[in-house]
Nucleic acid binder design. Structure first.
Length: 402
RNA sequence: GUGGCUGUAGCUCAGUUGGUUUAGAGCGUCCCCCUGUGGAGGGGAAGGUCGCGAGUUCAAGCCUCGUCAGCCACCCCA
């Protein structure tokens, strides 16, 4: 074995068939729910002008994947989907129908130091509603996010909801510190605020203020909406410490977590000022980003992913080179009738090896076709699990699968 | 970005305080026992310049430095 095979780049991954199939399953499921809720797909370029992101993000520009293209332009890989979508809303405002409800499932790129569950190329699933100020829009996207986890089969998912308006008198540093409450505790939060130059007394005051906050009208509307959507009462909760450090959050803000697992799988907020920053005119917006990788890990942890090593239902073997045309015809017939069929692509391989292949790939049925079968104009259908096999016509085989 | 741990066959790992020239095991792969039948069993084979590159030493998988990659914590997470 040569040791000169190039490695994948730090934080970038290959997905072998088994894993790629799981990812496809999750992606299809999520799209199904988005469509069910009446959201339309949107795709934006992988590469954007650097200014698009640089203008919005401020401090953390070191996480951009940026470089100069052959035309000496400053460009950056898609850093998130919200900003490009705001660009789209601004650029095509005249031809988009408001409210604009779109979903987007594409990779994003961040030059972070990778660890488990954190990669440099990762898939994000966003859904947002543009052009609506009403809390009903927030409630709708929150319910959508929750519904995704319900429909994926999680026994329970919980959305923690807050409203940034409740925190508007607090300095940004205090909000950032309080958002970490669950992780570092009260003392940690106080220390964090002190480190940022806030007097201890003031810091304690901020924390007490937040912990005693009561839901405002917006939150009430959202909670009520979720109740009417049929979610159990332990699927949602007002949590004044959920603040997230998004600098552009302007209203309701929420996270979904899966009880039993650490960290959140989805985060969302209202961002009414973002389009204006990009386009110069105001368009309200609210929505969420769903962490695809974390959600996939969670689904695996709860055994929600149906196992199927391969898509083929039947493997047609080739008994020997002189029976190739019979096997090919059988394969064509099965496929024409909608049976997912694989034919062994080597007519010189022994039958035993072809069966072993089917066994390893967990193809449930195998068709054997030799001189006996040809003489009787039937095929031998073998169930790989039970080892039972019987002769039948090809039409009978089709009936078993359709 | 800061700090720490790790890197030996396809996979999971062993490799004693640096020391016999052919670096081992299990699983997997391939061949045979089994010339119309996979999973079990028996026999055999292939597969590694010990992540990569320097250095120290009579001698390095083992020590030092650099580099690449993975993991953990911090930072951050639009």
């Amino acid at each position: 074995m040569s040791n000169t095979i190039p490695q994948t780049l730090k934080g970038f991954r290959d997905f072998l068939p088994e894993q790629a199939r799981k990812r496809q399953w999750l992606r299809d499921k999520i799209i199904e729910v988005f469509e069910l809720w009446g959201f339309d797909p949107l795709e934006t370029p992988t590469l954007e002008p650097l200014e698009l992101f640089a203008g919005q993000i401020g401090e953390d520009e070191k996480l951009f994947f940026k470089f100069k293209d052959s035309g000496d332009r400053d460009v950056a890989l898609r850093y998130d989907q919200t900003v490009p979508t705001c660009r789209v809303v601004a650029q095509y405002y005249q031809q988009l129908t408001m409210p604009f409800k779109r979903y987007q499932i594409q990779p994003a790129f961040r030059a972070e130091k990778p660890q488990k569950g954190r990669y440099r190329e990762f898939v994000q699933c966003d859904a947002d509603i543009f052009g609506v100020d009403s809390p009903l829009a927030d409630a709708e996207v929150i319910a959508l996010g929750l519904d995704i986890y319900r429909r994926l089969g999680f026994p329970k998912a919980k959305v923690l909801i807050n409203d940034r308006q409740l925190l508007k008198d607090l300095p940004y540093e205090a909000i950032v510190a309080i958002d970490k409450l669950k992780k570092i505790g009260k003392d940690g939060v106080i220390e964090e605020m002190k480190a940022k130059g806030i007097e201890e007394k003031t810091a304690r005051g901020y924390l007490d203020t937040v912990l005693t906050l009561k839901p405002n009208e917006t939150i009430q509307i959202i909670l009520n909406y979720l109740k009417n959507q049929g979610f159990e009462s332990d699927w949602y909760e007002f949590d004044p410490t959920i603040a997230r450090s998004f600098s552009y959050s302007s209203g309701p803000i929420w996270e979904i977590e899966i009880p039993g697992l650490t960290g959140s799988v989805l985060g969302g907020e209202r961002f009414d000022n973002l389009v204006e920053k990009i386009a110069g005119f105001r368009v309200a917006g609210t929505g969420f980003g769903l962490g695809f990788d974390r959600t996939l890990e969670a689904a695996e942890a709860f055994n929600l992913i149906p196992l199927s090593a391969t898509s083929a239902q039947v493997l047609v073997t080739i008994y020997s080179p002189e029976y190739v045309s019979e096997s090919v015809e059988t394969t064509l017939f099965l496929r024409k009738n909608g049976v997912r069929t694989e034919i062994y692509p080597d007519d010189t391989e022994k039958l035993a090896k072809q069966l072993k292949y089917a066994s390893k790939k967990e193809i449930p049925y195998v068709i054997i076709l030799g001189s006996d079968e040809k003489a009787q104009n039937v095929v031998q259908l073998k169930n790989m699990k039970t080892s039972e096999q019987k002769k039948m016509t090809i039409e009978q085989v089709v009936k078993l699968f359709v």
